[in-house]
Design a protein around this nucleic acid. Sequence first.
DNA 1: CGATGCGTTGATAACTTTCAAATTTAGTGG
DNA 2: CCACTAAATTTGAAAGTTATCAACGCATCG
Lengths: 241, 241
Amino acid sequence: MLTQTVVRSAALRFGPPSRMVPVMPRAEARPAFGASDRAGSLDRTMRLMGTVISYPRGAEVFGEEEPADYIYKVVSGGVRTYKILGDGRRQIGAFHLPGDIFGLESGDKHRLSSETMADTRVLVVKRSALNAVAGRDASIAQELLALTSRQLEHMQRRILLLVKSARERVATFLVEMSERSPQSNTVELPMSRQDIADYLGLTIETVSRTLSYLQCSAMIEVPTSRRIVLRDRPALDHMNG
Amino acid sequence: MLTQTVVRSAALRFGPPSRMVPVMPRAEARPAFGASDRAGSLDRTMRLMGTVISYPRGAEVFGEEEPADYIYKVVSGGVRTYKILGDGRRQIGAFHLPGDIFGLESGDKHRLSSETMADTRVLVVKRSALNAVAGRDASIAQELLALTSRQLEHMQRRILLLVKSARERVATFLVEMSERSPQSNTVELPMSRQDIADYLGLTIETVSRTLSYLQCSAMIEVPTSRRIVLRDRPALDHMNG
DNA sequence: CGATGCGTTGATAACTTTCAAATTTAGTGG
DNA sequence: CCACTAAATTTGAAAGTTATCAACGCATCG
């Protein structure tokens, strides 16, 4: 009962950051968590108060249990948050794309670790500074609250996702990604199959097979392993609920 | 692929509230979400400002999408929050026992419905009134924030739970319930097998079989279907991580 | 009693994982 | 630029897990 791939997990999955990969070309994806970009004062404030830091692919931005002193916004590239489970498996909390704000824990410690999925630039803002501004500027406080609220909603959807079948999970994931994508029907995946599997609570093999199935069923096309074209959105939507 | 039990779901699972059942005897369980009871100002404030309302078993406290104008605290009995999925399945969000505060949505609409699992008394407080007090009394605001934070953590644990095997889910559920129980090793379940199944994303048959398995393995005893004695806590804990 | 709802158990089918191998892709060095 | 190596992805076959369908037991209630 899940004695499973501790070796595979530890040895293969979390090896040293491998070779470089071109930074994702996606310009400004619609964020899942971040304030929408045209929006507002929060974005401006963060740009004013923050510093942009560049990380190579596979770098750790923050670790689990570290004090949550900063708030982050992806400028370019991509970040995944994750947690290593007792049995060596990895559960991914979220994928953060350009425009997304992350590291917004309600406590004072990070509950997840985070690392880059590609060469990534991140805007870093001191939490205390942002809180100070929020104390003075209600619209900032409101935006921060809205962010937290959106995260809660996302977790709620996530819970609903995890009780569904593999096909539904993968289909939902693709639709979700496409909604964050600039081109509505083509999804450029910044993450590996292993990342997707750990996000959906499946194995890479099941993810791969499911994608093959969706392709055979003409719901999607997979021109390259990291690019997926949604061919039959209604059918994919239908697998959600 | 989950064409499944729409009939069973709709017809059997959500019929009219069935016969009465003695209100749970559990006096004051340790709450999972609520402020701890010995605590504080929030509890006092709610008691001062609130009204106690009694519901029969199976009554709806609030419905999905309804405006979230009130905050609730279970006085006696028990409440489940849930959502009906597109395919007729039901996902349970949480079980609230005496002392627990619920209905604390971050938005202005409820994202889940809620109904009583037994005859239940609930303390109801107008959200606007509580917010007004929170504006003046920082300790109240803090307690409310802590509540939200705890809910986020709970959802996080929930996500971790849902990627595990049936045995792990049930074991984790029992441990979680026992930690909220006044008697440390005996758990009085206020909910049906169907409730547990919908909470864990399993079927009633799997829940039942898993409980039988845990009993055969001498990890638990099941004197009556609603009462479970944890016999081997270390073994049960070990199934978590 | 006989009906009804809930929980348990059994047999089978469907789904997902595991283990293994083939295939493709990406990076490296000549 | 091409061949070579390592990594990622896909595919296959078998095993394991969970759901489904069906039957049964056991209370409660009229």
